[in-house]
Design a protein around this nucleic acid. Structure first.
Lengths: 223, 223
DNA sequence: GAGATATTAGCACGATCGTTCGTTCAGTTT
DNA sequence: AAACTGAACGAACGATCGTGCTAATATCTC
């Protein structure tokens, strides 16, 4: 009986926590996790510094909570929408397109949250880096799994290394994000779209696989 | 004759500036340009805070000088060594291998300086971002030029887009750096080595081009 | 030597950082 | 109504930030 009866107090607390994290992921995607200052969050949200602090207990805990929040947003924006795409090659393709849209549409205002923040922490030992490494691994495994399915289904050549291919696909995605944000330019996304198809077709048993068809806009289907 | 007669004063000043920048690029490659604090640099080098500050005039100028210093180190480590490689496909290949060594050997202790710092500033308008954008453009153009030469020489297929191919190659390089640093793992470099060759061979008119031969160690040449 | 010049040190400023403390107030329980 | 709980506040702390001053110290010119 840890009475999960609705307690309005803790409920309100979680609400402000969510508000803080909503702002935190936005700031961190642009300026990084170190630029997250408790005082600034408090000012932006009209809260007191100590109030924000109390909700997390330490700056590092705030950073970790921010990473967890971003992970959820990323999953909702990129991975969840492709759940209804059939496993295999089509899903791998859908994951890439979904990722490009995630970056292009600025789900996080600074582009990909994890690109920004991973570069910031990848060489600094600590809990934040560990959390980011786990996210990275998770994403790579998601793409690799789709490609492994595709190979098992015969859509990719038997000698294809799903890990290598996933690495190449993700490399193109991340670089498109980086270049597009840095130069405030859309063409990297177009380059990336071409290259993704090229990479997949090069490993596909059937380069004309419908999962690799061009889709300029919408579903591209005309009945 | 703007009297370049050795003035020991300005010479000494430039010496300390170099010492400061040497430390600055190391710090920035690990923790970013914002983590560069004047007081910390002064303490690390046994100088006074105002002494360090006077050498640059402002924090932003220090950051810009750090970027310029890193650009020079990068050029010396990656671009200069391939100057004696014949232009074209061989040089493109050499640039990639040189870059991998630059990252793997930790010319900057935090891996690629520009990966770290570009992610930090790509979404923040300002002089630092502009300088980094220029560096990015310069590097892309260096690789693209080598590929354009290769195509002009008939080593790459006529329909190859040097910009797209350079983009893909650089994407693989950057991601190898990122993954290797984040997970403290060497395998991303091995993946990258395989993928680079794969990408170049796919566009080469002669996949058996000697410039694309495997070289496991050293020059691989036996007289 | 004297005088000009450029580097460096010393000191202090306002601002902001993360953190701690005691208090206030709304909601829950008895 | 009284007792308790948890979120949020306000004030303050020591530290560090970037940035100005002024003075001391080298070095060059004459």
């Amino acid at each position: 009986m840890t009475g999960p009866t609705t307690d309005g107090r803790v409920l309100r607390g979680e609400e402000t926590r969510r508000a803080v994290l909503h702002r935190a992921v936005a700031i961190a995607s642009v300026e990084g996790l170190e630029a997250l200052s408790i005082g600034r969050l408090a000012t932006d949200l009209g809260l007191s510094k100590s109030g924000v602090f109390a909700g997390f207990g330490s700056k590092e805990e705030l950073q970790l909570a921010t990473v967890r929040a971003a992970r959820r947003i990323f999953a909702d924006a990129v991975v969840v929408p492709v759940a209804d795409t059939p496993p295999g090659l089509a899903r791998a393709r859908a994951l890439c397109e979904s990722w490009l849209a995630y970056s292009r549409d600025r789900v996080f205002p600074g582009g990909c949250f994890f690109y920004e923040v991973t570069a910031e922490f990848d060489a600094r030992p600590g809990a934040v880096r560990d959390a980011l490494a786990a996210c990275s691994r998770e994403w790579h495994e998601t793409v690799t799994a789709a490609l492994t399915d595709a190979r098992a289904a015969g859509a990719l050549r038997p000698d294809t290394d799903p890990g290598d291919l996933a690495f190449a696909l993700i490399a193109v995605l991340e670089t498109a994000n980086s270049q597009a944000v840095l130069h405030d330019d859309d063409t990297p996304y177009q380059r990336a779209g071409r290259l993704l198809l090229r990479l997949l077709r090069a490993e596909a048993t059937d380069p004309a696989d419908p999962a690799l068809a061009l889709r300029t806009a919408g579903t591209g289907d005309a009945s």
